[in-house]
């Protein structure tokens, strides 16, 4: 019995306890908006930084306070820094936002599935983000831009609540100025000086320039936004197999053992967070699954 079990165990599982954090040093903390900040991190003592794929997340621990999942928002092509963007809304993220350069954080990961960037070459790509949902999609943008010639049209549709909530402003402006990118930004509620688009991000989908029959969509935002976005994408004629969504759920372990992130038949930390819409569609029309 024992021998049989040992034989079918995956070898890497024994190498390192997945619950044990590695130590990272805070190199920089920068506020992107009034409630959202980005952290630049580096492994302590010159340790190696594991590679990550766009869309993956880490479990980030603040000493004595707690640990939460945060998607990686930096460039997967850069091995010199780990970047996380998060909102200061909970106990752990507030404590994080008060950390000083040189402080230590615990990191476990990277975990979870990735945006299928390299698998969808030759296609048009439409990236649709709501609010902080842009953070896990930014690595996909970086990856696409690094290999731009392999893709058809690349469209980014981004919706924020107010102009003050627009994330990564500098980069959005730069991307908008590129001839081979179509970037549309909209806000739910305009304030004083805003002269841009007002309305939900779903309203941008109808007139966005992509060929529905040859497009892959990557969507991340509040769940209600993703429900309506996927419906709009289907209306435009994109195959539901070509629509990818990144989900948010409570996570305690990040490796499919604690049960918290269950959504129907998947553990979002393990089979997700990036999942095909066709796989999750039947649950998206239901509440409280």
């Amino acid at each position: 019995m024992t021998a049989v079990m040992q034989a079918r165990l995956p070898a890497p599982a024994r190498l390192r306890d997945p619950m044990l954090p590695s130590l990272y040093r805070l190199e920089r903390l920068q506020w992107d908006t009034r409630d959202t900040f980005s952290m630049d991190l580096l492994p302590q003592n010159g340790a190696d930084m594991p590679a990550f794929k766009p869309g993956q997340f880490n479990m980030v621990y603040v000493y004595g306070v707690g640990e939460i999942p945060i998607s990686i928002s930096g460039d997967p092509g850069r091995r010199d820094v780990l970047i996380h963007t998060t909102r200061a809304v909970g106990t752990v993220t507030r404590a994080m936002s008060e950390m000083k350069v040189g402080d230590t954080l615990g990191i476990r990961g990277p975990f979870g599935t990735a945006w299928p960037v390299d698998a969808v070459r030759k296609h048009d790509v439409v990236i649709i983000a709501g609010g902080i949902g842009l953070a896990p999609l930014r690595p996909a943008m970086y990856r696409i831009l690094a290999t731009r010639e392999h893709f058809g049209r690349v469209v980014l549709l981004y919706g924020a609540r107010t102009p003050g909530d627009v994330l990564y402003r500098r980069e959005l402006k730069q991307w908008r100025s590129e001839f081979d990118l179509d970037v549309f930004v909209t806000v739910d509620r305009a304030t004083g000086s805003w002269r841009g688009s007002v309305g939900l991000v779903t309203q941008l989908i109808g007139r966005a320039p992509f060929d529905p029959l040859n497009t892959v969509a990557m969507v991340c935002g509040p769940e209600v936004m993703m429900r309506f976005t996927t419906l709009e994408l289907e209306k435009r004629g994109i195959d539901r197999n070509n629509i990818y969504i990144s989900f948010e759920r409570n996570m305690k372990c990040g490796v499919g053992l604690c049960g918290h992130c269950q959504f129907g038949s998947v553990f979002v930390c393990k089979e997700g967070p990036v999942l095909r819409y066709s796989q999750m569609q039947h649950l998206l029309s239901k509440w409280e699954i």
Binding site: M5, P10, D17, V255, G256
Partner: peptide, 20 residues
Amino acid sequence: QDRVFMGGAYADPIYQAQRE
């Protein structure tokens, strides 16, 4: 529980060690 704790990409080392 063997399948839950030892059947996936990550095993629970505590369970696995005691199980043996």
